[in-house]
């Protein structure tokens, strides 16, 4: 559904690339997470894919549209949820959705149903200017579903949401994926990415440094540990063994044979740890 080949983009149209030689593909019904610290080029990438920035160099196809000349029909097929809420403050939540629904040439979802879906039904007739940050964000999220997009661009959809609402947003995204919707998720929330993404791309300094399923990435870069709790002379003790080191593996085997073991937990590296390892940068840098 999305094809990007050798994409370069520079705001100053010079050699100072914000996106540099990026290539990837997203299949139908796939959720691709685009992960990277601030300024890595995530937003630039999403703007190019949604037609907000022009393709300067390289090839980009979205839903069969060549993004050098996307044509207006593209916008009937995609939905975009912005990171920074952008609603008409003087219109109510419902009016905001109704207004944007009328912009599309395809059948649109019932605005009230969408509001209910994101828990805004009680605030439907209140002006969007009076919404909290989280509510505004949910309104933007709901708006991006109006035209029942086949490709869905989500930019930090869970920012400002409480854990329950974050869970709800993740469920909605997974439900849509079941319907065959392709999702391009930009975030620096590694937990969300790990929970719902089929594949993730690590982006740093305008380049994709790796792209694979979260499991493969962790297996490739993350060290696996085993944490063992055991009794030693009546006292509870804890020891960590790396599964990558022969010495540790032998030590673990010896321990299991010699001591009364109470618990054994395997400990995988988090995506975040993997990311730091791959890029040498922390995510919120």
């Amino acid at each position: 559904m999305i094809k990007v080949r050798d994409l370069y983009f520079s705001y100053g149209r010079d050699k100072n690339y914000a996106v540099s030689g990026v290539s990837f593909e997203v299949e139908k019904g796939e959720i691709l997470g685009f992960l990277g610290p601030n300024g890595a080029g995530k937003s630039t990438m999403q703007k190019i894919l949604t037609g907000l920035l022009p393709v300067q160099q390289g090839e980009v196809t979205v839903a069969g549209h060549d993004m050098r000349r996307p044509g207006r029909d593209l916008f009937n097929k995609i939905g975009v949820s912005f990171e920074i809420a952008n609603n008409y403050h003087k219109l109510s939540g419902l009016e905001n959705l109704a207004f944007f629904a009328s912009m599309y040439e395809v059948p649109t979802a019932d605005p009230m149903a969408l509001l209910r879906m994101v828990g805004l039904e009680d605030a439907a007739t209140r002006r969007a200017g009076a919404y909290s940050k989280g509510m505004s964000q949910r309104l933007v999220f709901a708006r991006s579903m109006l035209n029942r997009p086949t490709i869905w661009f989500l930019d930090e959809p869970t920012s400002g949401q409480d854990p329950a609402m974050t869970q709800r947003v993740k469920e909605i995204v997974l439900e849509e994926r079941e319907r065959g919707v392709t999702v391009f998720l930009t975030t620096h929330n590694m937990q969300v990415a790990e929970d719902i993404c089929d594949r993730v791309a690590f982006i740093n300094e305008g380049k994709i440094v790796d792209l694979d399923t979260p499991r493969n990435l962790k297996l490739r870069y993350g060290e696996q540990f085993v944490i063992v709790e055991y009794r030693d002379a009546g006292q509870l003790k804890k020891q960590i063994f790396s599964m990558g080191a022969d010495k540790d593996r032998a030590a673990l085997a010896a321990l299991v044979g010699e001591r009364p073991v109470e618990t054994i937990h395997s400990q995988e590296a988090t995506l975040e740890e993997v990311f730091i390892k791959v890029t040498g940068r922390a995510l919120r840098g």
Binding site: L52, D73, F75, I78, F82, N87, Y88, H89, M103
Partner: peptide
């Protein structure tokens, strides 16, 4: 208030 962005990603 960046609503022009939201407008840009519709077919209007």
């Amino acid at each position: 208030d960046r609503t022009n962005r939201a407008y840009q990603v519709t077919p209007a």
